[in-house]
């Protein structure tokens, strides 16, 4: 499985990848789109966003999104994110 751009994120990233790959073949392609890996994804994403800020790549990505938007990007709506952080609190 591929590494993350943030060395410290690779472990959680690969856990998430494993979960997603299994979900993709065993659930999604069989017609069940119920999310299964959200907790892992939020943890991974938290680490990733921190790394992107450190490497100053966040603005580069934000600019690219302006030109070529990613529909319903969950980074702009924090609804699902707050759900996971509320679980932690």
């Amino acid at each position: 499985m591929s590494s993350s751009i943030g060395e410290k994120c690779t472990k959680i990233k690969q856990e998430y990848d494993g979960c997603f790959n299994n979900w993709y073949s065993e659930k999604f392609l069989k017609g069940d789109a119920t999310p299964q890996c959200d907790d892992l994804f939020f943890k991974y994403k938290e680490c990733l966003m921190q790394t992107l800020e450190e490497k100053k790549l966040d603005t580069l990505i934000a600019d690219a999104r302006k030109d070529n938007p990613f529909p319903n990007a969950s980074s702009s709506s924090s609804s699902s994110k707050s759900e996971s952080s509320s679980k932690k609190e």
Binding site: S2, S3, C9, K13, F20, Y44, L48, N72, S75
Partner: peptide, 9 residues
């Protein structure tokens, strides 16, 4: 490296 920035159905 390959990172998932966002993903949803």
């Amino acid at each position: 490296a390959v990172d998932v920035l966002d993903r949803h159905v």
